[in-house]
Simulated scan of single mutants.
Amino acid sequence: MVAKETTKPISREEVKKAKKSKKEQEIHEEGRQKVIVRVRLLPIWVRVLLVLILMVVSTIAGLIVGYGVIGSGEPKDALEKSTWQHIIDLVEKE
């Protein structure tokens, strides 16, 4: 009869600690510190620009859907200056 080996389940934290300690041992064994350099696919300024562009596009899409579909108007009219001038005149009317 063969005895079964029982293993205790380990948590994620224990796995992380084990990996960290292994890395630290490798660093100390080599005698110099490893430097991990993370290369980003997109620089931060590109990400900010991309977010701004997406915000403008989503705002325009929201205007068209809100004015054309929900407001039962013509969707292309949502982008005309005269429409917004009329809305401003209604809001500022006393």
Rank of each mutant, 00 (worst) to 15 (best):
V46W: 08
L52K: 14
V46K: 11
P75H: 01
S21D: 15
V56Y: 08
S58H: 03
I88R: 07
T59R: 11
Q33I: 15
E5R: 14
E14G: 05
L42G: 00
T7H: 13
V46T: 07
E94L: 13
E80G: 12
P9C: 00
L42K: 15
P75N: 02
E94F: 12
V35T: 13
G71F: 03
P9T: 05
I60N: 05
E24G: 03
E92H: 09
V51N: 12
K20W: 03
K76L: 12
A61Y: 10
E5C: 12
E80C: 09
E13L: 05
S58L: 10
G66I: 02
H28N: 12
V56D: 09
R32D: 08
V2R: 10
V69Q: 06
L41W: 11
G68K: 01
Y67I: 03
E94V: 14
V37N: 05
V15C: 01
I36P: 00
A3I: 09
A61G: 05
K8I: 13
R47Q: 11
K4D: 08
R32E: 09
I44P: 04
V2M: 08
E5N: 12
T6E: 12
V57P: 02
V91D: 08
G31Q: 02
E26F: 02
A78H: 04
S11W: 01
K76A: 14
V35G: 01
E29P: 00
E74H: 08
I60D: 03
T7K: 15
L63Y: 08
Q25D: 11
R32Q: 11
S82G: 06
V15Y: 02
L54P: 01
V65R: 06
G68R: 03
V48R: 13
K34D: 06
R47F: 02
E26Q: 09
L42M: 14
E5Y: 07
